[in-house]
Design a binder for these strands. Sequence first.
DNA 1: TTTTAATCAGACAATTTAATCTGTTTTAGA
DNA 2: TCTAAAACAGATTAAATTGTCTGATTAAAA
Lengths: 143, 143
Amino acid sequence: MTVIFSKKCEYGLQAVLFMAAKEPGCVCPSDEIAKKLKIPKEFISKILQSLTESGIVDSKKGKSGGFMLAKHPSKIRLIDIVAAIDGLDLFNSCVLGFPSCSPDKPCPVHDKWGELRSKAYEMLSAETVDKFKQKTLNKIGKI
Amino acid sequence: MTVIFSKKCEYGLQAVLFMAAKEPGCVCPSDEIAKKLKIPKEFISKILQSLTESGIVDSKKGKSGGFMLAKHPSKIRLIDIVAAIDGLDLFNSCVLGFPSCSPDKPCPVHDKWGELRSKAYEMLSAETVDKFKQKTLNKIGKI
DNA sequence: TTTTAATCAGACAATTTAATCTGTTTTAGA
DNA sequence: TCTAAAACAGATTAAATTGTCTGATTAAAA
């Protein structure tokens, strides 16, 4: 199989987009997120804990606790979530798996691929989660 | 970690590019490929066997046997190798892992990502392995 | 004809990733 | 104060991917 982001990262992106689509400052228990997004509860819980350590999400323990965004949605870029969970290796390592692929030791597809990769990086860096509010609400309604 | 192609696919692409950089019709034992590309021998052997079933590679058993390309390098597209090993799911399934992501049930980043994905697909479909002969020779010399 | 070097076949092992389980701590609200 | 519901912590299991091993078959060359 082929993957762009790990499952952790996919779920992390889903969850942050979900929280960004709710009222600002609103507290979401992991149980609610898990049910709405059809993600295993313990798994999304772990992922949100790690995003809390990364400073993207905040958490509140105890009854009526849960997770909330640590910053305004307009300050959270998609690339921040990817960087926190999967890291940025995807944008630096060789797509063919060659060792030490670099401008002076380029792999055969270095240029062709590099161009696409840069575009992907730019897109993820430009887009913040607040931009997807309406689209997220639409999608959640159809899962 | 993040991945575009599986290790199998990376190695498969490397091996086919390697063979395409040699004299046409030339027979390469898997042992040679493994050594030149620093890939575990048994692993690349398995991968080449599967590419043989896919009709991209041919094989010759017995002493002085090995693998060779089944078609002219100008007829082997990068996407053919990816399709044979990893399949084309990457270009159809949701980058956020949402179920049934489609034009009428788009995920939040459906359009933004779809654009990049199409460009990647077009590149892999347009490029044939003969185009990379010189670049491959350069890279092999520097591994 | 025998040896040698190759693919091929299938089981096996190791590693990584994904998911689950058990229990502890925290805190709001009854 | 007590209870319920939440995050948190860490161990464990399950599944997928990656890599290895053993042996059978094939065919060129000595």
